[in-house]
Amino acid sequence: SRNVKDDLRWVECVQRIRDAQDRAAFAEIFRHFAPRVKAFLMKSGTDAGMAEECAQDVMATLWHKSHLFDPARASVSTWVFTIARNRRIDMLRKQRRPEPDELTWGPEPEPEAADVMELQQESARLAEALAELPEKQRDLVQKAFFGDLSHSEIAAETGLPLGTIKSRIRLALERLRHAMK
């Protein structure tokens, strides 16, 4: 259902928005992600009007924060998911969402192409692994992300296939730390 070529294409779109305020690149990424953000919100119980408002806001945030996206640490889907999640908490639960500090002070060095490629590949592999989970377990994970499961209902042992992507992200973080020294 998903391939690395798509993921790399979205990365390129975000970089073109960042470097050239490229509206065509934005329209392309919008056509793919905006409906998914809206569907995601509606699936977690938001009415259509609020989901539209929220989806527009998420996509506008993608434009404004394009310089903060690091393709060696996340796929574009993951990044958009985190923006949508935070907006949902802001707008619907009317709560602040305490966030960890960002890792760096100034502009980050452009990540190495090989690191970007590896991270995007791992993300695609994770998607495949999730698709192959036993239905019961996959259902549970979905429920957690669509807000149907509170933290106390989530079992301590999730058994999610996260092994490789965890170490990829850890490597990216280490590299970033070394670059800052």
């Binding site: 996340a74 796929s75 889907s77 993951t78 998911f81 998607a127 994970v141 992200i169």
Partner: peptide
């Protein structure tokens, strides 16, 4: 970051 990547898949 890994758990958020799961969220990314759910969004897709």
């Amino acid at each position: 970051g890994a758990f958020e990547a799961v969220g990314g898949v759910m969004l897709q």
